[in-house]
Design a protein around this nucleic acid. Structure first.
Lengths: 189, 189
DNA sequence: ACGGTAGCGGACGCCGGCGTCCGTTTAGCT
DNA sequence: AGCTAAACGGACGCCGGCGTCCGCTACCGT
């Protein structure tokens, strides 16, 4: 995972690349996507030109920075799919995804809105959705999840959760937790 | 309501004031709060200086432009409070407020986040909340609203609903409708 | 009708983010 | 160690939004 594309990069270039990605992940998580490219460069300790050389556009940077987070989403979905109790797994998925969103402001954008330049992001997203659908199907079979539930309902909830702005990170997490509980109640048969 | 403060304004000045407010309401509703002041001035057919003279800051303009929308919120709350069936009134409140939010992007900001410079906005908001609380109390008494419901849950739902970004206005309205239905399910005892 | 003044708006300078160029540094190979 | 090319980053010009100034317009009171 550490060596995706950069096969023929000089050592210092690769180092900078990683530092940029680290800075981008950090600042995207706390501040959201609306940060100046300069700010990311500054935090990474590189010049603007270096940043632009590695990632010509903000979308390119975001796409690369978010693969990790998307992996996290997929991991959550697959882990909870493995739970022998599908309804419990379903509830955990909602709780964990909401909390992830609260902790990382930008993951919402990455997940809900389909990114243009994100090639493998889309694939990752697709696999995650597939797991979620399967989990929902099983939860329905146990009769604990409403029969009229559709996957779009979950997307809707996650989108809405992403819109939960709050001053502090703690407040955001608390709100998301309450919100997840509400969503689960809405989905119970 | 047409003559709030401007007692000693010349006729053309008052005219411009109204045209600015109209433009602001329109553009705030469709585009949200993040529009340049210039754009509002342009749509109102006035120069930037005129806009700034009437409303020194964007908050001042927004506060003035939103009193009407806040009235709408209060009206909704009071109308539904008058419904003999409190639970039905409660459901209608959620549906109508969500739709109002979907149709008017900026009302969310005005309602959920307390505006600094909005003197009478705060009062209006307070009265609305009081009505909502009373409505919730009655709905609880009928046993149809969950006993553990708190008013903050409603604020939470409205905030989340406000975060429901979508490309077209129609899509936003549709999403809000589905979301309101979900929220109601979550609140039913 | 006419003078005085409230009100108007085009034009200005400032600021901050953007994307790029080019002289300098440094990794990596021999 | 020396060389070459890859990589770096400070500096530049551009753009768009901001808030304000001042010469002109037109409303209103007499």
């Amino acid at each position: 995972m550490a060596d995706d594309l950069p096969h023929k990069l000089r050592s210092d270039a690769l180092d900078n690349r990683e530092r940029i990605l680290d800075a981008a992940r950090a600042v995207f998580a706390t501040e959201g996507l609306d940060v100046p490219m300069r700010e990311i460069a500054r935090r990474a300790g590189v010049g603007p030109a270096t940043l632009y050389r590695h990632f010509p556009t903000k979308q390119a940077l975001a796409a690369e920075a978010f693969t990790e987070q998307m992996h996290a989403c997929r991991t959550i979905a697959e882990e909870e799919l493995a739970d022998p109790d599908p309804w419990r797994g379903f509830c955990h998925v909602i709780e964990r995804l909401c909390e992830l969103q609260a902790r990382n402001r930008s993951i919402t954008t990455a997940f809900t809105s389909a990114f243009p330049h994100a090639i493998d992001l889309a694939a990752e997203r697709e696999r995650t959705l597939r797991s979620l659908a399967e989990l929902a199907r099983r939860a329905k079979d146990t009769g604990q999840l409403r029969p009229d539930f559709v996957l779009d309902d979950l997307i809707l909830v996650l989108t809405a959760n992403g819109g939960l702005h709050a001053a502090s990170a703690d407040a955001r997490i608390a709100a998301s937790r309450r919100f997840a509980a509400l969503a689960i109640r809405a989905f119970r048969a």
